[in-house]
């Protein structure tokens, strides 16, 4: 329950901070940090335009996409406190329920019969396929390290003692951050502020969404960032008491958002055809974590 509240709170400012950081880095004052949320609220009130090509799939796709992200959020714990749903192997459910959302966002894009949206859909399908093994290997290694198979148990048993386990946590944080970037289609995989449809991934998929549906999709994006932020925090939180953990949590989210903003300000997007290679690198980093976990658990021969 605690994680739910914290994730929703984080979601309200995370994207705002990113935008603000980018504005300041490029020498502008920039909008307030709650501007994205205000935009979404405005979108919820607006009318909707549907493409004449589209069918019911296009109309329900954003809803299912949002719901899948929402249910995935219920699985995520906060330190010692469990998520609303918690069971052995819940991280498998987490990945697959996000997959359901992805499936619908892809077919929603295909439903418009547009030349661009198919392009984005194709890329999204490819990238998420590559990102999946990284997540499973990483969670498997953490499971191996701790001997548990649910998010909450893994994270609360993840005692950081030896230097090598710190290195592992940092690597894991890197992988999660990058998965978050892929899932949210941010730099260096995708540039959300690009102006050319040909070079977009996620933005081009939602070209035809408007009003309520667009609001849902954007909200889901905010939530996704906060979800991955919370997971990254969990890597380090261990058994810290709540009165310290909660301020630390917010500090960390602020820092993450700031870091994402800085990455986006000072880095260029990768060439489209090199993205796949980059995402495969994540799997190899996960493998590195796996071998590290083997070392710690003394199973490395």
């Amino acid at each position: 329950m605690l994680s739910l509240i914290l994730i929703i709170l984080t979601a309200t400012f995370f994207t705002g901070i990113i935008i603000r950081t980018k504005s300041i880095a490029s020498g502008r004052k920039g909008p307030g940090i709650f501007q994205p949320v205000k935009d979404v609220i405005r979108l919820f009130k607006k009318g909707t335009v549907y493409s004449e090509t589209s069918s019911f799939v296009f109309r329900i796709a954003p809803t299912i996409y949002f719901s899948s992200v929402f249910v995935a959020m219920l699985v995520v714990p906060f330190g010692q406190s469990k998520g609303i749903i918690s069971f052995n192997g819940d991280f498998i459910f987490f990945a697959y329920v996000l997959g359901l959302g992805k499936f619908f966002s892809i077919i929603g894009a295909m439903d418009t019969g547009s030349s661009f949206e198919g392009m984005g859909a194709s890329r999204e399908a490819l990238y998420s396929m590559f990102a999946e093994p990284a997540f499973f290997i990483l969670m498997g290694s953490l499971g191996l390290l701790t001997g548990y198979t649910s998010f909450q148990e893994i994270f609360s048993a993840l005692h950081l003692g030896s230097p090598i386990s710190y290195a592992l946590a940092v690597l894991a944080a890197f992988v999660f951050l990058m998965i978050a970037m892929i899932e949210n289609s941010r730099m260096p995989i995708d540039d959300p502020k690009t102006h050319l449809e040909l070079t977009m991934v996620h933005e081009v998929m939602i070209l035809d969404n408007s009003g309520f549906d667009l609001g849902l999709i954007l909200t889901a994006g905010f939530l996704k960032f906060a979800i991955y932020g919370t997971i990254i925090f969990n890597l380090f939180s261990g058994t810290i008491a709540y009165e310290y953990a909660i301020p630390m949590f917010f500090a960390m989210q602020l820092f993450l958002a700031f870091a994402v903003g800085m990455i986006e300000s000072f880095m260029a997007r990768f060439r489209m055809n090199q993205n796949a290679q980059f995402i495969v690198v994540l799997s190899s980093v996960s493998l590195l974590i796996f071998f590290g976990a083997l070392l710690i658990s003394g199973k490395f021969i």
Binding site: A95, Y96, G99, K102, F103, I106, I107, M110, D111, G118, A121, A125, L126, S128, M129, F130, A131, E132, P133, F135, F136, I137, G140, S283
Partner: peptide
Amino acid sequence: VTALAMIGGLALMCFTKAFG
């Protein structure tokens, strides 16, 4: 595990293509 995850991802790609 990697294979199962890959199969899942590839199947998603295949059926979004087929259905789409």
